[in-house]
Amino acid sequence: MLSIHEQIATVTLTATTMTTQLAAQLRDVAEQLQYAEQVSIVIIQATSPHFLPYVEDDGGVGHYAFYNQVTMMLEAWARLPQVIMAVIDGACAQIGLSIACLADLRIGSEATTIAHTGLALGGVAKRFSQLVGKGVAMHVFVGGHVMDAQEAQLRGFLRVEASPQAAVEQLAKQLSAQSKIAMQYTKESILRGSDLTFQQALLHEMDLYMLVQTSHDRLEGVEAYLQKRAPQFKGE
């Protein structure tokens, strides 16, 4: 399920149905990645065109275990500091949509559809609303609207590519040449700031910026720019 090559970790889903066992595996993967210092980019993709649109939850005796495991898995993914990219090349719904909303960048094709069907776990409605706007989120989550690829791209939710796999690999390579610290702190500032008042968020941004200023990456980045050469970031 997890492979790591240099700075890029790839998580490949081979199922289209979220089960308690799969949720546990994905949680383990997220906890491993939490401490994988060398990793700056995490790609999550599926072997099927569809992105986890089904769940195995009949509401019976296993319901609580399923619910708990999925929620804990989503919490673990939400805590990842790395840039997360999701490849969504087909139907994305249910827990698939929850995971897609935890990604920072989503790449798909003309075949991609975004829908809410059934379970909404891990704060997905709030995150989706922050990602695309309140009205659109209401339309999808309450009104049952199925968003096609073009609309998803217009809203910024999806980048539509002829070959999503190739596009995500190219983008991951490009981003991994940037400063890992700078990307992680930018991500943290945007995400945490969205739950703060503007003024509190600006103070948070400033403190993160001051931390970045103490990094080797910042020194190297500015020196490389002034010397007109490519920077060699160490993530330190």
């Binding site: 910024g156 700078a182 990307m183 991500k187 945007i190 503007f198 910026y209 500015v222 920077p231």
Partner: peptide
């Protein structure tokens, strides 16, 4: 990020408030 820095003149806060989180992250 390409030069080891982050937007710190309010950009990480004003951008998502002007557009949305999805465009801001991108």
């Amino acid at each position: 990020a390409a030069i080891g820095m982050m937007p710190a003149a309010g950009g990480t806060q004003s951008l998502p408030r002007l557009t949305n989180l999805a465009h801001a992250m991108d």
